[in-house]
C-alpha cells in the first residue's frame, strides 16, 4: 500500500495486535485441528493406550499421547466384524443417488426458471427454498408416516428420496444463479443457426459444467454427513456410516477405538472432496448468497 510512507503505521497498538493475532491464530489452529488429530491417532491406538492421559495439572505428561504402538486392528474389526463395507456402500448409493437426481432434475428446472418469467415465480421460489431450510426433524415427521405407507422405511430408495428433500431445492437454487450468468444471446445465436431449443440448452451446458460437477460433490457431502434421516428413514435396511458409527456406542461397552476408526472412514473421503471443490465451498454453503 502506498499510504505506508505517509502514515505512521507501526503504532504500539498495531504491534500489539500483530502479536495478539499470532497467539490467537496459533491457539485457534490447535483447537480446531486437535479433535481431528486425536481422532486419527486414536484410531491406530490400542484401547488401553487411548485411555492414557496424564495426571491433572501435569503439563509435561502430554507426551503420553504419542506413547503407543500403531495398530490397524480397529479398521480390521470395522470391515470384518462389523460390515462397514456394506454401510459404506449404502452411504455411497444414498448420497450419490440423491445427488444425481437432484442435479439432473435441478439443472433442468434451474435453467427454465432462469430463462422464463411467469406469475407466481417468486412464490414458487420461496416454496423451493423453504423446503431446503425446514428443520430436518420437522420434515421427517410427515415423511416418516408417508414412507411407512409406501413401505419405503429402511430401504435405499426411501433414503435417496429423503435426501432429495434438501438436495433438490439446493441444486435448483444454486444452479439458477449459474444459468443467470450465462447470457441468453448464446442460445439465441444457436437457434438462429437452426439449433432446436434443447440443442441450445445442451450447448450452454459446458459453460456451467464445472459448477454442476462441484455441486454434485456438495450434494454428496450433505447427504453423506446426514445422521437424522439415516437413523429414522434408513433404520433397518439402509444403515449409513454415521448411523453405524453411532451404533458402536453401546451402554455397557463403548468401542472407542472402533468409533475413532469409523470416524476416520466417514470423514476422510469428505475432507478430500472438500479440498477438491474448495473454490465452490463458500457459494455452496451460503446458498449462493456469498461468492468468493
Amino acid at each position: 500500500m502506498a499510504s505506508r510512507d505517509v502514515v505512521q503505521y507501526k503504532s504500539p497498538l498495531v504491534v500489539a495486535f500483530k502479536i495478539f493475532s499470532v497467539i490467537f491464530l496459533t491457539v485457534y489452529l490447535i483447537w480446531t485441528l486437535l479433535p481431528i488429530f486425536v481422532m486419527f491417532v486414536s484410531s491406530f491406538k490400542d484401547l488401553l493406550e487411548a485411555f492414557n492421559i496424564p495426571e491433572v495439572g501435569d503439563w509435561a505428561g502430554v507426551t503420553v499421547f504419542f506413547d503407543f504402538t500403531p495398530t490397524l486392528k480397529h479398521y480390521h474389526s470395522l470391515f470384518y466384524d462389523n460390515n462397514f463395507g456394506e454401510y459404506m456402500a449404502n452411504s455411497l448409493i444414498a448420497a450419490g443417488g440423491s445427488a444425481v437426481i437432484a442435479v439432473t432434475f435441478g439443472s433442468m428446472a434451474a435453467y427454465s426458471l432462469s430463462r422464463v418469467e411467469f406469475r407466481g415465480k417468486g412464490d414458487l421460489f420461496f416454496w423451493i427454498i423453504s423446503t431446503r431450510m425446514a428443520p430436518v426433524v420437522a420434515v421427517m415427521v410427515p415423511l416418516y408416516a408417508i414412507f411407512r405407507s409406501f413401505d419405503l422405511i429402511g430401504t435405499l430408495p426411501g433414503l435417496i428420496l429423503a435426501y432429495t428433500t434438501f438436495n433438490l431445492p439446493f441444486a435448483i437454487w444454486i444452479l439458477k444463479g449459474f444459468f443467470d450468468n450465462v447470457p441468453y444471446s448464446i442460445e439465441e445465436a444457436q437457434m438462429v443457426d437452426g439449433a432446436t431449443r434443447f440443442q441450445a440448452f445442451m450447448s450452454i451446458l459446458p459453460l456451467v459444467a464445472p459448477g454442476i460437477a462441484a455441486f454434485i460433490v456438495l450434494c454428496i457431502l450433505f447427504a453423506w454427513n446426514d445422521f437424522l434421516f439415516a437413523a429414522i428413514i434408513g433404520s433397518g435396511g439402509a444403515k449409513t456410516l454415521p448411523v453405524a458409527t453411532r451404533e458402536l456406542v453401546q451402554p455397557q461397552n463403548i468401542q472407542w477405538g472402533a468409533i475413532m476408526a469409523a470416524g476416520v472412514v466417514t470423514t476422510l473421503p469428505m475432507m478430500l472432496l472438500g479440498l477438491v471443490i474448495r473454490k465452490y465451498l463458500v457459494t455452496g454453503m451460503t446458498m449462493g448468497a456469498v461468492k468468493e
Binding site: Y28, L29, T32, L33, P35, I36, V38, M39, L221, W224, N225, D226, F227, L241, P242, V243, T245, R246, V249, I259, M260, A262, G263, T266, T267, M270, M271, L273, G274, L281, M285
Partner: peptide
C-alpha cells in the same frame, strides 16, 4: 486448515 471441521459429519463430530 480452518475449514476442515466443516467437512466432518456432525454426528461423528459429536462422537469425537
Amino acid at each position: 486448515a480452518l475449514l476442515m471441521p466443516m467437512m466432518m459429519a456432525p454426528a461423528v463430530a459429536g462422537l469425537v
